[in-house]
């Protein structure tokens, strides 16, 4: 609102400068601080090249990506069905929505050991734990989406002689799309959180194994490189989902 005395550059230019500044700061602080815990950007980058040439690390990352994809897919399917079931009628909505919200309120991290007990320490427990994180945002968003549909639309469809399937196909589904995509964006980060939590907890294989190995042997450069790669993956997933969300929100 306040007029500036100079013309400020467009926000993205300043944003790029800020990021650059942070990276430079990382390099400088990394050279100053203890090399045991901290590592300058340049070293992390060179280690990044070596660890991503390592077959085992690549294999672990690929496994994590697979687990994430399966977990996310299952979350969407189960969450969608669950959400539609809860929003099926006024009765089911008011009976089961409180139950859904109650289950959502239980912090999943506390039940992680049960998941490992039941699903073992392989990919299954990681997938299941990822689903336990991704399922609820989808279900709740779907319920909210159905709830937001104007009853008038449905009433007029009925008066024009629409069948249930037609109502579902022509009204419920298209009007649901924006909230479904919001739910999917939330679920993608939540599933990733769940999968990584399980990976770090089990840590016998996969990414968790390497974070533990690099951490315990005090190889910060490798640890940072691995974490930077995972962070980039998370940001990319989030941005992709945001793009999809924007695109499909325009649809209705």
């Amino acid at each position: 609102m306040t007029p500036l005395s100079f013309r400020s550059p467009p926000p993205w230019v300043s944003r790029a400068l800020v990021i650059l500044l942070l990276l430079v700061l990382w390099e400088i602080l990394g050279r100053m601080g203890s090399q045991l815990f901290f590592s300058p950007l340049s070293m992390v980058a060179t280690s990044g090249v070596t660890i991503f040439a390592d077959r085992e690390v690549l294999e672990a990352l690929r496994t994590t990506a697979w687990i994430l994809a399966i977990g996310f897919g299952l979350s969407v399917c189960i969450g969608l069905v669950l959400g539609l079931a809860v929003a099926m009628s006024r009765f089911t909505y008011q009976t089961f929505l409180p139950v859904l919200l109650l289950l959502y309120a239980i912090p999943q991290i506390t039940v992680l050991p049960i998941f490992v007990l039941y699903f073992g320490s392989g990919p299954a427990s990681k997938i299941a734990f990822g689903v336990s994180h991704g399922l609820f945002p989808i279900a709740v968003s779907v319920v909210a989406g159905v709830q937001g549909i104007k009853p008038l639309l449905v009433t007029s469809a009925i008066s024009m002689g629409a069948t249930r399937w037609q109502i579902f196909r022509r009204i419920t589904l298209p009007y649901l799309a924006p909230s479904l995509f919001t739910g999917m964006r939330l679920a993608s980060t939540a599933t990733l959180l769940g999968v990584l939590l399980a990976e770090l907890y089990v840590s016998s294989g996969g990414v968790g194994h390497f974070t533990r190995r690099f951490g315990e042997s005090f190889q910060p450069d490798k640890l940072y490189a691995l974490i930077a790669a995972l962070s980039l993956m998370a940001i990319l997933i989030n941005e992709t989902m945001r793009m999809l969300e924007r695109r499909f929100s325009r649809w209705t």
Binding site: S8, S14, V18, L200, G215, I227, L230, A234, I235
Partner: peptide
């Protein structure tokens, strides 16, 4: 202007599951 510059940076870092920084905390 500050909000427009910094908000997207902070919110995209927030998209990272912070748990993956935990091994750094433990190491340090």
């Amino acid at each position: 202007y500050g909000a427009r510059v910094f908000e997207p940076i902070i919110s995209s870092v927030y998209a990272i599951p912070i748990i993956i920084f935990y091994p750094i905390s433990v190491m340090a």
